[in-house]
Design a protein around this nucleic acid. Structure first.
Lengths: 345, 345
DNA sequence: TGTGTTTTTGTTATCGATAACAATCGTAAC
DNA sequence: GTTACGATTGTTATCGATAACAAAAACACA
């Protein structure tokens, strides 16, 4: 009663050819005439034959798997990057496996360990900060590695990302230009998100050059709306109240914006707010967030193309730094001190 | 120079045993004494041996892969369900592959086709509405199938989800109780999200029982903040303005809330707003959204446990309907007609 | 001490494909 | 009508593991 799946041998027998001809026909490689190819693929389709990729990959000693590790899928940022990659990869006949490391390097490490057992064609990691174990493994395994989202002077292999410190520097300067003088950064536990730390450093440096300090407020939560909300609540209790908040990302910024609203603080009049990413929630906020727009889909697509090229032996550049642009928005700006309308929403 | 990965044979030679002993030792199955097992695993670790899963799965005719298809990862809803599953599955030694179908049944179908080639242990699909091709394939392949997020009388195999129509019915009654009489549904193109259609139907039925009609407004966009915003803008142009909006989900509801705010409509005084899911953005909104709370993480965990049990041959229930509870929030309620404060945010 | 039983270890066949090489076919050139 | 070369097809070895069965060793009990 069990409907044993048809294998290549069955198709070969049915078509009256050798299994190699079927193999060649199915993969679309050279070595069969157009006529027999068409005949074989026709019969295969009719028989409902699906090649066993496990066997194929084993024989080829490499699979068509691309394993991607991102910190989280709880916000759309990495989902967009991944979506950008997938389309291109799928088009190139590559399957993707996604992992969420939850910003935990050890978890990334154990994942790399596991993935290697599948002989993937490539591994994609988020960021450039990895444990020594991971670097070691990747060095010894002959797997193409792509580091995404951040850039470094010494990539393991390929690298497509942003210069986060520079993005911070840029935003810092923007905030200074807007007249802010007492900035605070609101983020999460130190070390959890290395990219955010770099951005913070950039902002700190920008203000530092002008002799101003950056207050740092950290919540222990994951990067979320709530973390931003809580951060603001905590920040407002500081002895000298900041005049602008630079948030870890737009999620925290939105939470922070809501917190300011709840606290009755006028934005940007009494408090400036800046985020990072340019999420699409920005398109519906009554007041657009000041933020840095990151080219997420494009980054994914770029990375995927570079990866596919590399897998085909066409090695072009090894490292691309994508541009980040500032969306001035409406949550920073001249400090008005007019009448304060009460909150609605 | 190439550091050929060590294989089972190398370990066997180094340990002075047969490869079967190594195989048994590595997998933790019966058939080796404790002493030799420890010795073998020690040597293997020392040699940096990682078993080739392709070979293993091929020999076993089944892999430890669980393939999961969700409509989207752009909002956190499915990400949370998936996260709930992953932990349990990983614990059971199962690897997960995630696909986003973008609400496209054909895309789901081609994905199923591709996944089968990897001999997965199980397939997880979102919803219970699939193309006939998919049903056909899954019937013939001997793969455990889990349908998630929705429920049906006749699941393919296993099923863990919500009764969406009932959730709609529940919310509809709630809105009626709050005094609303002219409801409108704001969603996306018909047929794209079958679950949303069921919820809408539930609301329509609830109002219908009381002799009231449900206006239906559809934007063509994907389910997003913008879709809710645009939907409201369009709804406000209707001849008879609705007094309450039931949105496809919280994302649209948040967008709609912002639109009402921008349009200067008092919520809930002049307009009620209800969503679906209970996203955590609700924790920071100055006015909590009226919504249905869905147990997403729990659903994922429950599904994963059921799946693991089924894979081990322990078949308990086949179908579980998870409860949905209403969060009354503050965007629906007595229609106040007090002074209208101007918008801040 | 010998025989039966259980545990441990090893041997052989197999999983379903692909690579590398060998054989065959067709046809163009001489 | 051969010779020769490129295009097509087939054969054999291999990929790295596991299942099923066989052999050897350890243990038990009369």
């Amino acid at each position: 009663m069990e409907p044993k799946p048809t294998k290549i041998e069955d198709v070969a027998r049915a078509a009256g050819v050798s299994i190699m001809s079927v193999s060649r026909a199915m993969r679309g490689v050279e070595g069969v005439s157009e006529a027999t190819r068409d005949r074989i693929t026709g019969i295969a389709a009719q028989m409902g034959y699906v090649p066993n990729r496990l066997a194929g990959s084993l024989a080829q000693a490499t699979s068509s798997l691309v394993c991607i590790s991102v910190p989280t899928l709880f916000d759309a940022v990495f989902a967009e990057i991944v979506a950008g990659m997938r389309e291109t990869l799928l088009h190139a006949g590559l399957e993707t496996i996604i992992e969420t490391s939850d910003y935990d390097p050890d978890r990334e490490a154990s994942w790399v360990e596991r993935m290697i057992t599948w002989s993937p064609a490539a591994l994609v990691l988020s960021g450039v900060d990895h444990t020594e174990d991971v670097r070691e493994r990747l060095r010894s395994a002959e797997i193409t590695v792509m580091e995404l989202w951040d850039v470094t002077e010494s990539p393991i292999d390929l690298c497509v990302g942003l210069d986060h410190r520079d993005a911070g520097l840029q935003m810092g300067q923007h905030l200074i230009d807007q007249g802010y003088r007492n900035p605070a950064y609101i983020g999460i536990t130190k070390g959890r998100d290395p990219r955010a730390e770099k951005r913070m450093q950039g902002v700190a440096d920008a203000f530092g050059k002008n002799g101003m300090d950056l207050n740092v407020i950290r919540t222990e939560a994951a990067p979320s709306f709530e973390a931003g909300y809580d951060g603001v609540m905590r920040a407002l209790a500081l002895p000298s109240r900041p005049d602008v908040f630079y948030f870890l990302n737009d999620h925290l910024a939105v939470g922070g914006l809501m917190a300011c609203d709840t606290a009755g603080l006028e934005v940007p009049g009494e408090m400036g707010i800046a985020g990072f990413n340019g999420l699409n929630i920005n398109n519906v906020l009554p007041r657009r967030l000041t933020t840095s727009i990151t080219p997420r889909a494009l980054m994914g697509k770029t990375a995927a193309r570079m990866l596919v090229a590399a897998l085909r032996g066409v090695r072009t550049e090894h490292k691309i730094t994508m541009p980040v642009t500032i969306d001035p928005g409406a949550t920073t700006g001249p400090k008005l001190t007019g009448s304060k309308p009460s909150a609605q929403l």
